[in-house]
Amino acid sequence: MGDRRFGAEGHALFSRRHEYPLPTALDVSRIRAITIDLDDTLWPIWPIIERAEAVLAAWLLEHAPATAAQWGDPKALRAVRNEMHTLRPDLAHDMSALRREAIRLVLTRAGDDPALAEPAFDIFFAERQRVELFEDALPALEFLAKRYPVVALSNGNANVHTVGLGQHFHAAFSAHEFGVGKPDARIFHAAAGSAGVGAAEVLHIGDDAQLDVVGALGAGMQVAWLNRAGHAWAHAPLQPHVTVADLMALCRQLG
């Protein structure tokens, strides 16, 4: 959620801390496990967030009318949610905490009971778990799970069991539970370890060029960049091992 990319300075610093492999083609024979992003890889995230924000705004109108009068517009609530990145950098890895504290902040500013942040967030979070999969997501997960241990690896706060996909996953890692998020190599390595393999034996799949591709390359994994919208690659000389427009195209390459 929000701007998930680094600036040029941040990218340069990150690059200096890691040694990256030269671009190579995907080696299917090396793959022993899959890690996969969730938001914007298995489902589009912004329609979900917009719907959850609308549900939250309606709840505030009923239970915290002063807050709703000042902050009832979902765009206004989102602006405060983004403000929390500056106010609480210690929560940068925890999307749930950032959202909850943003709600608490607007309640306080409006003079409503800040304790309402807990039930308000629960309303938002329940709606956030109601995902609508991309058409290729479920058949791809079924294909992958029959062949490899599949580990969810997300900076977001979706729960694979709550959204109804838990049976396809060997394990799941989220930034807010692990303590750091992508592109930090530690969360990639932990995901590989949960599948009982080394990073070099993992294929990571994700849509975000910086968090997923650059991050997984820095962790020593092979990477499939899911590029549904046909964006240009902006991180040369680094390259994903394979770029696909949909998940079934990748499955066909894995055979």
Score class of each variant (00 low, 15 high):
R5N: 15
G7K: 01
G7L: 13
A12Q: 15
L13F: 01
F14M: 07
F14P: 02
R16I: 07
R17E: 14
A25H: 13
D27N: 13
V28P: 05
S29N: 13
R32G: 14
I34K: 12
I36E: 00
L38Q: 01
D39Q: 13
D40M: 08
T41Q: 05
P44C: 06
P44D: 05
P44R: 03
I48V: 15
I49P: 05
I49A: 06
A52T: 13
V55K: 06
A58R: 04
E62P: 01
A68R: 05
A68M: 05
P74W: 02
P74N: 04
L77P: 02
L77S: 12
L77G: 05
R78E: 09
A79I: 09
H85W: 13
H85E: 05
R88D: 07
H93L: 09
H93P: 08
A97K: 10
R99T: 14
R99M: 15
R99Q: 14
R100P: 07
R100G: 13
A102I: 07
T108C: 05
T108N: 04
R109T: 08
A110C: 00
A110W: 09
G111H: 04
D113T: 03
A117K: 03
A120T: 11
F134T: 09
F134W: 08
E135A: 15
D136Q: 00
A137H: 07
L138R: 09
E142I: 02
K146Y: 03
Y148D: 02
Y148V: 00
V150T: 04
V150G: 02
V151M: 06
N157L: 06
N157V: 11
L165Y: 06
L165Q: 10
A175Y: 12
H176I: 07
E177K: 14
E177G: 02
F178Q: 08
G179N: 12
K182Q: 09
P183G: 11
D184R: 10
F188M: 08
F188A: 06
H189M: 04
G193T: 07
G193V: 01
G196F: 05
V197K: 11
A199L: 04
A209M: 14
L211F: 02
D212T: 13
L217M: 04
A219W: 01
Q222L: 10
V223N: 06
N227G: 07
A234E: 14
P237R: 13
H241T: 10
V244Q: 03
V244F: 08
A245S: 14
L250Q: 10
Q253E: 14
G255K: 09
